[in-house]
């Protein structure tokens, strides 16, 4: 266990270099100041996120004061929107927003879940990458491009082919009544469905993927078919998160602006007929903001923005909590 002298001598000390290093490191400050400043900066950035939310809220409340004072809560139950006489009621827009979003959710959810299941369990491994890439691409298409396509491609298709069929077979419900101009609530719903589909599909897939393999295997071991395994082993366990993903999609649809503005017809009516034009909270802001003459008009539009903000905040918060409950705060995907 003694050190052979030869070995000790072989270790090159390089005394000069080493003393330079030691004195440099010992003189070097501990960086406490820099550490504090840096941590502070990072904290400020994090707080900026809070700051932004608070700023948005305060700005919207401040700018919509006029309208809030003038109309109070009746603003949201008043059906008349007439800038000329200064009467502002947001009910038609509320109706249009809720109806178009619900339509979209009804169309998107079954498809999104089916695709999520397809990608998770049915799809051959080789196809999985390309298909999930394509669905992600769907999410990357800008709203205005959807709108462009909606005006020039989707709306004529619905006017010429889908509308007549709906009128003929479902006309009795009162939901589909001629004439159909192609632009209207139904077309907006279809566009929105395409737009929110990737959100619902990718997040519900993340949620389903979190279900432990043992859960599936347990069910499979009982002799279940694939569908039974999915229903009992996966869907039941991921239920909460899937509902969360649907609500996230709903939140997205509620606030979607450009595509809807371009195909919904922009007429503040409240008709049961889905083929009739409508108007949404977001699209009335987009269309009339720069033309708003008079402070009350502008204020009313900003109050609509405030409503949109509060609704989407609540919807998103609920949805996020539900998704987190399943993934346990495990960051799954940042897309939304």
């Amino acid at each position: 266990m003694e050190i052979p002298p030869a070995m000790a001598a072989r270790a090159t000390p390089a005394e000069q270099g080493s003393s330079v290093i030691r004195s440099f490191l010992q003189k070097k400050s501990s960086g406490r100041m820099a550490d504090g400043v840096f941590a502070g900066l990072m904290l400020i950035c994090a707080l900026a996120i809070f700051g932004i939310v608070v700023l948005i809220l305060l700005m919207l409340i401040d700018q919509s004061r006029l309208s809030i004072h003038a109309f109070g809560l009746r603003f949201f139950i008043n059906r008349v929107w007439d800038p000329v006489t200064g009467k502002f009621g947001a009910l038609p827009f509320l109706y249009g927003t809720v109806l178009s979003s619900l339509l979209a959710v009804c169309m998107a959810v079954p498809l999104a879940l089916a695709v999520a299941i397809f990608l998770l369990d049915v799809c051959p491994r080789a196809l999985r990458g390309p298909i999930s890439f394509l669905t992600e691409l769907l999410a990357a298409i800008p709203s205005v491009v959807y709108g462009l396509w909606g005006i020039f491609v989707l709306a004529p298709i619905i006017r010429d082919y889908v509308g007549p069929v709906l009128i003929r077979y479902l006309g009795w419900t009162g939901l589909f009544v001629a004439p159909d101009f192609g632009v209207g609530m139904f077309t907006a719903g279809v566009i929105l469905a395409i737009m929110i589909f990737p959100v619902i599909s990718s997040i519900s897939r993340d949620v389903m993927r979190v279900v432990p393999v043992s859960q599936r295997e347990g069910v499979l071991a009982l002799g279940a078919t694939r569908w039974e395994m999915l229903r009992i082993g996966v869907l039941r366990n991921a239920r909460m998160g899937i509902i969360g993903s649907v609500i996230l999609g709903l939140g997205r649809a509620l606030g979607e602006t450009m595509a809807v503005t371009m195909v919904i017809g922009n007429h503040p009516g409240m008709e049961k007929n889905l083929l009739a034009p409508g108007y949404t909270l977001a699209s009335v802001i987009a269309n009339e903001f720069t033309e708003a003459t008079g402070d009350l008009y502008l204020s009313a539009l900003i109050e609509i923005g405030l409503a949109l903000f509060l609704v989407t905040i609540v919807v998103n918060a609920v949805a996020r909590l539900m998704v987190w409950a399943v993934t346990r705060g495990n960051p799954g995907s940042v897309q939304s």
């Binding site: 270790a11 090159t12 390089a14 270099g17 330079v20 290093i21 440099f24 490191l25 070097k28």
Partner: peptide, 23 residues
Amino acid sequence: GLKLNGFRRKRILDEVVERSLRQ
């Protein structure tokens, strides 16, 4: 350990790297 603590003298760095790797 030296660079990220702000040590910049290249010649000494070269020496130190070689010596440490030899050690």
